[in-house]
Structure formats: C-alpha cells, structure tokens
Amino acid sequence: MTARVGIVVFPGSNCELDCERSFERLGASTEFVWHDDNTLPDVDIVVLPGGFAHGDYLRTGALARFSPIMHSVAEHAAAGKLLIGICNGFQVLCEAGLLPGALRKNEGLKFLCKWTELRVEVPGTPFTARAERGQLLRIPINHFEGNWYADPDTVARMRANHQIVLRYVKNPNGSLDGVAGISNERGNVLGLMPHPERACESLLGSEDGAVIIGSMLDHVMHMQPSPAGV
C-alpha cells in the first residue's frame, strides 16, 4: 500500500509540481485536485501547496478559502486525516479558520527566499515522528507574508497544548515566538512557512524536508489511530 496524497491546485498555486515530485520521491502516490471541484478523491493526506492562490489579491489566502474544494478539505481534517498547508497553503488554512493566527508581511517588508534552520519543538506528531526533540532541520523559506501572529491567550493555549511544532533558530521575518510551523488542537493539521518539498535531495542542498514528509507517510502507512487518541 502507498499513501495517497491529494495536492490541491488553486489558480495561482505554483509549488504543486514540486510537492508532487518530493512526495512521490518518498514513496507516495499523488494526484492534483482542482480548487473548483466539490469533493476530494479518496486520499489519506491533503496538501495545500505554496504559491499565490488567486494572485494573493485582497489578502493572502483570503479568496482561496472560498474555493469550492475547501468544504471537503475541512471535512477531511474533521475526520482526523492529515492536512498540511505549506507557505501559501498555511496562509489559506489560517484564513479558513483551520489553524489559529494570521500571517502578516515580513518584518523587513521584503520578500525572502533563503535557507533557514528550524528546531523541532514537538516530536512525535504525525509530521515530526521521524525527528527528535530539538533536532535542527535545514529547510528554505520563500515568502513575503510569513510573520505569524496570534493574540496572547491563543498563544498561551497553543503552547500548553504543544501546537507550536517548529520554530526558527534565527527568526527571519519577525514571526511571533519564532513560529515556523503550528498544528491545530487535534494535531492532524499542520501549517508551516518553510518548504519541506524543496529540501528532499542533497543535490539541492538538504534532505531535511524528508523528515516532515516522511513522517506523514509513515503515519499513514502504520495506520495509526487518529491523532486525537495519541
């Protein structure tokens, strides 16, 4: 059995081909899901890839959350299945209310494409099972709006609930608490600004992205109980 991955393509998405390549490289089978469809195919994992869905006009992710497929994506998450939003996908998940907080423009008011080091703060999640606590991952960022923010109560609750899964070792964009990746309360939805799909091959500079993608595939393959039961 291979893990089945659905990669949602919005008009303006641009990392879908890279996600396809890296998920398949690690053993998954993938298919693209058009944003205008009403239902997801039978998949174990849904990926909202990076890019500029609907041109990022109005506000990043603000239009994409209204795409027809998003109902089905929310149901997929509600069923406890894995959902990951990478970069623009993270922004869409925040706008859709599937993850807390919001992503503002980078502190330096510049787009940033660079390698960053991330620290795994919460191992043992479906997204970090292959990592140890404190392990450093070298994965690049590529965004203008990656400066995550939430109100203090939300942040306190998230800390207590181990939802701040990945932090930057050196904060590149002013993100609150150095947040690079967060999960929902149940732990089956992850949003992260860095691009793990860009770091799955030593020829391109790092294989650390495979820790995150591989963990997800392991999780599906081991048919573990829903994360709510972990």
Binding site: C15, L17, F111, C113
Partner: peptide
C-alpha cells in the same frame, strides 16, 4: 537583491 527572488522553485536550482 537575490534573497528577494524565489530562486528555488521547480527543484532544479543545483
């Protein structure tokens, strides 16, 4: 200059 450009997409930038 170049950190403002996405220089990695397509997984081809060796």
């Amino acid at each position: 200059v170049w950190e403002q450009y996405d220089h990695m997409i397509f997984l081809g930038t060796v």
